[in-house]
Design a protein around this nucleic acid. Sequence first.
DNA 1: ATGTCC
Length: 467
Amino acid sequence: MNGKHVTKLGFEKQAVGLALSAAHDREARGVSRSAILQELRDVQADPDAYLHDATYAPLASHLRAQAREAHARRGTALRTEPLPYDVWGAHLIDTAARMQMDTAMRLPISRAGALMPDAHVGYGLPIGGVLATEDAVIPYGVGVDIGCSMMLSVLPIQHGAVKTDEAVSLLKRHTRFGAGVGFERKAWRGHPVLDERTWQEQGLLRHLHGKASDQIGTSGSGNHFVEFGTFTLDQADLGLEPGTYLAVLSHSGSRGFGAQVAGHYTRVAEQLHRHLEGPAKKLAWLPLDSDDGQGYWQAMNLAGRYALANHDLIHARLSEALGVKPLAQISNSHNLAWKQHVNGQELIVHRKGATPAAAGQLGLIPGSMADPGFVVRGKGHAAALESASHGAGRQLGRKAAQAQVPKRDVQAYLQDRGVTLIGGGIDEAPQAYKRIEDVIREQRDLVDVVGRFDPKVVRMDTGNEDI
DNA sequence: ATGTCC
C-alpha cells in the first residue's frame, strides 16, 4: 500500500497520511489489500460509523471535520454585484451604511434585503438593515444585543395624576441600569423564562444561566431606557377609547447573556469563514443545518424570550408600585432573525434594528430621550420584507455627539419639552438622532401610526458624561 | 450592546 492507492480513492491533504497509516496498521495484521481498500471506502462513505473504531477513528474524525468545512464554504464566493434591494428614506442614510448593505447583498447566501430610513453604520450588517438568507444565519446580522426590544404599557391612570417627583422616585426604586448590573438579593424577582429546559440543552447556556438570572428585570446602557409619558390615541384602537393616558415605555435587551451568546457564535462563524475579508468578515454565517447553526438558533431565540422577560418585570414592578394593571400592553423585538416566507420560499429574515411590520402587526418606534415615540401597525410591505425602522436612527456617532453637542443645548431641548432625565449622556442627546417625524414620514407605506407617546420622566444609564 | 478576551 502506498500514497497512490489512497489518493486514487479520493482522500485529500492530511486524510492521505491518516488513511495510509491506518492501512499499514491493517496490513501488519494480515488483512488483504483489497479488503483494506474496501474498508477505506466504507470509512469514506460514512465516517460517523467509525468515530470509535480502533484503527480508523483518527481518519474518520478528520474526514468529518473536512466535510463540515466544505459544507460551510459551500458557494462561498461573494457575488460581483449586490442583489438589488429597496431603500426607504435614502436621503437620510449615509453612504457607509449603504455600502455595508451592498456587501451583505453580495453574500452567496443572501436572497433579498431592504434598508429602513433610520439606517446607520453597525458591525457587519448596518443598523436598520433587513436581510433574508437561505439556510444560514449570520450572528452579526442580528447584532450584539440579541432580542433587543420595546414594550409599552398603557395605564388606567389620568396623565398628570403621577407627579414628576413620584415618577422619578418610582424609576429609581424599580429599575436598574448599566453593564454588569442586577437587582440586589432582597429586591430580586425571578421569571418563568429562567426555568426553561432550554438552559440545560447547551453547555454555553448552562454556563450563562447564572448571569442571566442575576440580571433579569434590568435595563442595559447606551440607548436603553425606561420612561413615564403620555400616550395619545386620536381614535379608538387597541381596545381603548380615544384620549390621553399615562404610560410606561421601555427599551431593553438580553444584557450580558445575549452579548456572550453573540460573541461566542460570531467567533465560531468567523472561524468557519476565514476566507471572508474586509467588510464581509463580520457577516460570517452558520449553516442552519449544522450543530453550531442549530445551537445559535436555539440560544438566539432564548435570548429573545429573555429580553421580553426583562420588560415584563420592569412593567410589572412599576404597575404594582402604582397599584394598577395595564389596560393594554404592546411589545416587539427589533434585533432578531425569523423564519419567514419570502416569494413562496422559507428564508431566514434578519432584522438588525428593524421592527417586524407584517399586515396588522403592532410595533413600537421610539424617537429619542425627549422626542415622541409611535405605536404603529404594519402594512406587510413585501419589498421591505414586512419591516419598518426601529427608531429615529443615529445622525451623529457617539464620539461625534460628545464632541459637537453642548450640554446646555441638551438641557434646553429637555426643558422645552418638559422632560425630566435621570442619568443619560451626551452621546444619547436628541441632537444625535435623526428627526423621528422625518423617519416616520419616509415609511408611510410600511406602517400606519396608531398612537403617540410623549416622554415625560426618563431614566437611562449614566453615559460618559452626564447631562 | 457588553464587566469591551473563554
